[in-house]
Design a protein around this nucleic acid. Structure first.
Length: 348
DNA sequence: AAGGGTAGCAACCGCCTGTCA
DNA sequence: ATGACAGGCGGTTGCTACCCT
């Protein structure tokens, strides 16, 4: 597996490791410890470069490596941490005992990323994809307005797709520097403009309309939200209404703040945002139930998936219900409802 | 049964950062 | 201040196994 076997110009072997090489490396490290990777292979009698040895050790031979399927709980933690840390695989791995950065990276790229995409979630920003949001808005708005005003469909499309908003949003989403920091005044300006346009847009669309737009995005969040950011940015954007202290059905992922609505009608902040120290100090601070993937079923069903796992004829562990469960995690994600009385920069 | 397509993942590559002389 | 070195990181590659037609 992996790279093709062979050797480089220095005569060092490349490609898959043999059991004999593994044994040599393990024996050496058990005797002498690791470190000094450049000289290690020579001392251990290996025709490998130090880098290759280090990788083999850290990703495969280390005794504390945990192999096998990722649990649902691990799934949740990975998604949650990724929403805060981005592609910092080593940082994520540091909070998943027994898992390596390489393993998590592979798992993300081959499983989670695809799953999120299937569900209409942008795996980079952890928000609903903009195009889907627009489509959803259009469909809902058109549906409502066609009931109230059967002839008003065309006009409504015109207001739904405010060209200024779309061009700004497009520029924002396609910016090579999407990982903008909130501290950048230029970015704040663009973000505020988007928010402003969006709010204006919705006021235009729904003035006098009893129906709420079921979709609302919060454009002020940045991709790589600083780890030391705290919840104090939240209330400015998504304030709890003093009189209506609950949310309508569904939840809305709010990128990188780690805040999500759950189905229990409360707003949930990730531990990382509640207490940034948690992120670096204690993985147990992460409350899986308070994550992106929280659903009624996940609340009532233990996340430990062992009960769902069976061994098939080939002796490999697999689980139908687990897969269904994993897929259903985000099945409500496209049911974005805005809570009654939600105050978004005072424009609702 | 055979062949093409693809998912999964171990291993490599190149760049970056920290340390030390 | 600077250059060399060691180690770490994220992204990419390419082989194998499995699936589908």
């Amino acid at each position: 597996m992996g790279k093709s076997p062979g050797s480089d110009k220095n005569g060092l072997k490349k490609g898959p490791w043999t059991a004999e090489e593994d044994q040599k490396l393990v024996d050496y490290i058990q005797k002498h410890g690791h470190g000094r990777w450049r000289t290690l292979p020579k001392n251990a009698g290996l025709m490998r470069c130090g880098k290759s040895c280090r990788l083999r050790w850290t990703n495969y031979l280390r005794p504390d490596i945990k192999r096998g399927k990722f649990s649902l709980e691990e799934d949740e933690i990975i998604i949650q941490l990724h929403s805060v840390l981005g592609n910092k695989w080593s940082a994520i791995a540091a909070r998943l005992p027994g898992r390596t950065d390489n393993e998590i990276k592979n798992y993300w790229n081959t499983h989670i990323r695809k799953k999120l995409l299937r569900m209409g979630i942008d795996p980079v920003t952890h928000t609903p994809r903009l195009d889907l949001l627009e489509l959803s808005s259009l469909l809902n708005s058109s549906l409502y307005n066609s009931v109230l005003n059967p002839t008003g469909l065309v006009g409504n499309i015109g207001t739904m797709f405010n060209p200024n908003l779309l061009s700004l949003a497009t520029a924002f989403m396609s910016s090579p520097n999407k990982n903008m920091e909130n501290s950048n005044p230029e970015n704040i300006q663009v973000q505020n403009q988007i928010g402003s346009f969006q709010c204006q847009n919705q006021v235009e669309s729904y003035q006098g309309n009893q129906f709420q737009n079921p979709v609302q995005i919060c454009p002020t969040s940045s991709n790589h939200f600083p780890a030391n950011s705290t919840a104090n940015t939240l209330p400015n954007l998504w304030q709890l209404d003093d009189n209506v202290n609950n949310y309508s059905k569904g939840f809305l992922p709010m990128q990188n703040h780690g805040y999500y609505h759950d189905s229990n009608q409360s707003i949930i902040a990730s531990s990382a945002d509640q207490n940034p120290a948690c992120l670096t100090d204690n993985v147990s601070c992460l409350n899986p139930l308070g994550s992106l993937l929280s659903t009624p079923s996940s609340s009532s069903t233990p996340l430990n998936s062992s009960s769902n796992t069976y061994v098939n004829n080939n002796g490999t562990a697999s689980s139908i219900t687990e897969d269904i469960e994993r897929d259903s995690y985000c099945s409500n994600m496209l049911m974005f409802d805005v809570r009654n009385g939600l105050n978004v920069n005072g424009c609702m």
